[in-house]
Nucleic acid binder design. Sequence first.
DNA 1: TCTCTGGATGAAAACCTTTTCAGAAGGTAT
DNA 2: ATACCTTCTGAAAAGGTTTTCATCCAGAGA
Lengths: 333, 333
Amino acid sequence: MTSIKDIARLAGVSPSTVSRVLNEREYVRAEVRKRVLDIVKEQGYVQNHVARSMVLRRSFTIGVVIPYLFNMFQRQLFASMEFFLEQQGYKTQFFFLRWSDASEQAFLRRLKSETLDGIIFIHELDNPSIYRYIQERGLPVALCTFEKQEFGFPAVHIEEEASAELAVEYLIQRGHRNIGLITGEHFSFGRQREDGYKRALAAHGLPYTPERTVRVPAYNPEAGRTGMLTLLQRKKPLTAVFAVTDELAIGAIKALSESGLKVPEDMSVIGLDDIDISAFTNPGLTTVRQPIFEMGKKSADLVCEWIAHGRMQGRAELFTATIVERESVRTLT
Amino acid sequence: MTSIKDIARLAGVSPSTVSRVLNEREYVRAEVRKRVLDIVKEQGYVQNHVARSMVLRRSFTIGVVIPYLFNMFQRQLFASMEFFLEQQGYKTQFFFLRWSDASEQAFLRRLKSETLDGIIFIHELDNPSIYRYIQERGLPVALCTFEKQEFGFPAVHIEEEASAELAVEYLIQRGHRNIGLITGEHFSFGRQREDGYKRALAAHGLPYTPERTVRVPAYNPEAGRTGMLTLLQRKKPLTAVFAVTDELAIGAIKALSESGLKVPEDMSVIGLDDIDISAFTNPGLTTVRQPIFEMGKKSADLVCEWIAHGRMQGRAELFTATIVERESVRTLT
DNA sequence: TCTCTGGATGAAAACCTTTTCAGAAGGTAT
DNA sequence: ATACCTTCTGAAAAGGTTTTCATCCAGAGA
């Protein structure tokens, strides 16, 4: 491997000068610059990133923390982040966290050993020790899809409760009175969306009946399917269901068709997120759209600006969610 | 940040000794080892990974090259790789490549500057210069879902042609004679699956009619949708369609339902891949399953073993695909 | 002619590890 | 007592870069 020394020798200058050329410092004669650049090109030399990181004590790498079994919504989110991070000259290092203490501990160790320049969370951690470490170290950070009041980190998210309310409101306005809820465990957005559901009910004087709520262990289609099945089994009158994520909704629709029920004729279903695939289900899923792409961009910008300015720039970035009408909701007459 | 020197000073030994303890070398008194370990724990010290990579000239990092707009199949694949790589003590660095020369060049530069220990491709590159560079450098590598005869790299994949043949054969055996094909551009698997389609037709004495084939610019649902629409437009008699990927098939089903056609009553659809979501479409997608998880594991193992033994271990790993029967294919009577 | 100024350059230190080599201490065989 | 192992330890070099500091040189002003 050719090093900066080789280039220096070949160009008849010192390594310092080559470094200056490569990093576009001033104080180097145009003639010398050209000679160096020519040799660099000729030799196909590129800076050794490891050595560079070591001396500069920064890695030009942003960590992105994401659940190991990330869903399609999170996938689109991190694709968007990666795109903007790359655009600004940063590499992205993904950390896929499992839902275990061991996994979080391993992550903390890597965090300490790895010289990241910043970090974005798309995954809400229960254990505060990691957030605490980040705060103490003053590492630039952004939270995406949730917030942590206690730490005051910049957070990028929609108004979860209001968005859920929007979905249920949509159902109520179309004449639905007996509305089921499929939600999941863990993560504040689950609770918040549940609260939004209750608030919408309350706003219209509808009673909250616990039998119409089912709580499943994950936010994926399979969980949505079993959730819908148990809801059906309880035999409470039901004309519509709000699933707190699109993936749950997709599973719910599957369960309904398995049970010989038609969507939306026999049962309306509404989701929340608007992931890509929701436009391709049968029937097309009516849902509430999070501006995924923009949220990814904003998160990336937030850490990059923090790094550039040396201190935190914004606090919270609230995005608004909007209804996407497709075919999974019927108007009752 | 505490360094190995701080630990050494605190423990009253030299940095060399601390290093020996940390790397579990022999020749250090049990008593000293314990003292050092205690201080390490007390100080929460972890080795600086960058410095370590520099002196060892390896990064314990494997690169995974994947299309920027990776599909759900590739997503499951790389999740599986990441899992096994992590298990063997490697970090994973993802490279999301866009479909452009600039993107490939940028990747090559990073490849040169980054000291990766190995690399896995889930993305077939047209330009041979990258493969050539890897070969010259002797970098451990594995190809997943395709192969490159000229380079002799280890490759993990199914028999593409035979798998496609299996799908079409399934259709033929259920009485279908007029079978459409939706395939995409780029990537050898598209061509190979197309060949499999033709071979199945030929094996049963059925004519190949170009009007029943449509080639779309991508392998995603939207492309599948437009593909199906043009197929329908051509008004050739058709009772079944083979989409070369599940995502295409999902889009095709959507197009059919938009056109008022029922699957499988009016048209049968079969895919290939068996991605997670295929079990949740309506109707459930009949498809051909690639053993995604195992293929990811095998790819990871291949590079890890290459690294461990210092030279290439296997050449090609062929996996077999199997039919997954769901509800999107009807038997003609 | 002498001093000053400012641009251009190189030598060397620093970043944090690992590893080689040499040496010390203690034991054993001659 | 000497020579020779073993086991353990530390000093120093090495890895590839950036940056500080010192030096050199040319031109300007006195």
